[in-house]
């Protein structure tokens, strides 16, 4: 390990990916894609965590990543279940059609 790559590179990539996910959440109207973008954000954080852990030589960050992956999977499962149920009632997964509340 010659240490040419610094932690900056990883963090830059992670934060750009995080922001891409964020942008997707704001811009997309398809709920499926919003869920995917949320996953992207979580993955970006995971990358940052692992990089931090590796560069500080501390294992806890990696373990936190492990939990983050678990949580993300659970969230996706629930999200897709709700989406499917909602699709059965409303026949759409686009945001502009899923807006009964607040009227």
């Amino acid at each position: 390990m010659d240490g040419v790559l610094g932690i900056e590179e990883y963090l830059v990539v992670a934060s750009i990916l995080f922001c891409i996910g964020l942008l997707g959440v704001i811009l997309r109207r398809n709920v499926l894609l919003i869920l995917m973008c949320l996953e992207l954000m979580l993955n970006a954080v995971n990358l940052a965590l692992v990089a931090f852990a590796r560069y500080s030589g501390n294992m806890d960050g990696v373990i936190l990543t492990f939990f983050a992956i678990t949580v993300a999977a659970a969230e996706v499962a629930i999200g897709l279940a709700i989406l499917v149920a909602l699709y059965r009632r409303r026949k759409s997964i686009f945001l502009q059609d899923l807006n009964l509340l607040g009227r």
Binding site: I7, E8, L11, C19, I26, Y55, S56, G57
Partner: peptide, 30 residues
């Protein structure tokens, strides 16, 4: 929305980049 999103996300990146110098850059051996 796109503009606002770009501005905000840009802000996030900018802040993160400002900071990057603070951390250690040397990996300990494993």
């Amino acid at each position: 929305a796109a503009a606002l999103g770009l501005v905000t996300t840009g802000a996030v990146v900018a802040i993160l980049l400002t900071w990057v110098g603070e951390g250690s850059t040397i990996r300990p051996s494993v």
